[in-house]
């Protein structure tokens, strides 16, 4: 049960991080002095969600995933682990450092004063959203790999 709880929390925080990155993207597109404080808080929330999702997902991966990996590899979709998990676990490092960089870029650069500074925040947010969507999709495929593995038993 704890195993499932960790997994759910990892996914929920990852999705929340992506949604907050979308909110930040929109906030920066419509940047003005009035809601800069909110923009700063959202950027920090993206970083917190992604870092906590990384820590929980990492703990789950190291402690619990071995059993699921064996099921996937013996099942009909072994590539769910061999490809999608391998790619996901390494792409997550990119999301992690992009997310940690995001509040540094927002707090230290007032995004509504200069188009180039605003574009930096838009670009970082877009990368987090795109990589995040890929890892969520890969997570779904890995989960399906376990289902197909169990069905074949």
């Amino acid at each position: 049960m704890l195993n499932q709880g960790f997994m759910m929390l990892h996914v929920v925080l990852g999705v929340l991080g992506i949604l907050l990155a979308v909110a930040l993207f929109m906030d920066t597109l419509n940047a003005n002095e009035g809601h800069f404080e909110r923009t700063k808080k959202i950027s920090l929330a993206v970083a917190v969600c992604m870092v906590v999702s990384f820590l929980i997902g990492g703990y789950w991966y190291v402690v619990y995933y071995g059993h699921d990996r064996d099921i996937i590899k013996a099942g009909q979709w072994p590539w769910a682990h061999n490809y999608f998990m391998e790619v996901k676990e390494h792409l997550f490092f990119l999301i992690l450092i992009l997310s940690i960089y995001l509040p540094i870029a927002v707090y230290r650069n007032v995004p509504f004063t200069d188009k180039k500074k605003r574009n930096l925040i838009l670009g970082i947010s877009a990368l987090i959203i795109l990589l995040g969507l890929f890892t969520e999709g890969a997570g779904g495929i890995i989960s399906k790999g376990v289902t197909f593995g169990l069905m074949g038993r």
Binding site: V87, L91, L94, N109, K116, N119, L131
Partner: peptide
């Protein structure tokens, strides 16, 4: 400037992503 840093961040992310995938 910010534009140059952003260009290289996008490029590095694409290169790293393509190498991993």
């Amino acid at each position: 400037d910010s534009q140059k840093i952003l260009k290289f961040i996008i490029l590095a992310t694409i290169i790293s992503g393509v190498v991993i995938a």
